[in-house]
Simulated assay, not measured.
Amino acid sequence: MTNVIDWSKYGRAKRKDPKWEVTYEGNARGDGIRITAVFETEDLDEVVASIRRQIQYWKDEPK
């Protein structure tokens, strides 16, 4: 038995490029974080929700 996956059984999924780009720089544990977001103005609510989910993830992370 091998660990090779036969992808032909599963078909090909199309990758969706994100409609925006968010980068995080810094340390979530004290030094502060610089967040840079590039997006269309109509995507503002989705970008804010994405950033809030990331912040919540960091808060829920075991210390």
Rank of each mutant, 00 (worst) to 15 (best):
K16S: 00
D6M: 07
V38F: 11
E21A: 14
Y10H: 11
D31K: 15
D60N: 13
V4R: 14
G26K: 02
S8H: 08
Y57I: 08
K14M: 08
I55F: 14
K14H: 07
D17L: 01
P62D: 11
V22K: 01
G32K: 01
K14C: 07
P18F: 00
G32W: 09
D6H: 00
D43F: 04
L44H: 05
M1A: 13
P18K: 05
A49L: 09
S50Q: 02
V22P: 00
V48F: 02
A49E: 10
D60P: 00
I5S: 09
E25R: 13
S50H: 13
E61K: 07
V48T: 05
R52S: 08
I51Y: 05
V38I: 08
D31R: 11
I55E: 10
Y10C: 04
D17R: 07
G32Y: 02
R15D: 12
K9E: 09
S8V: 08
L44R: 13
T2G: 15
R12D: 13
T23W: 08
K59P: 05
I55W: 11
T36S: 14
V38N: 05
E25H: 08
I51P: 06
W20A: 06
Q54F: 15
K9P: 01
K9Y: 09
N3E: 11
D31I: 01
K16P: 05
Y24V: 00
K19H: 03
P62E: 11
D6P: 03
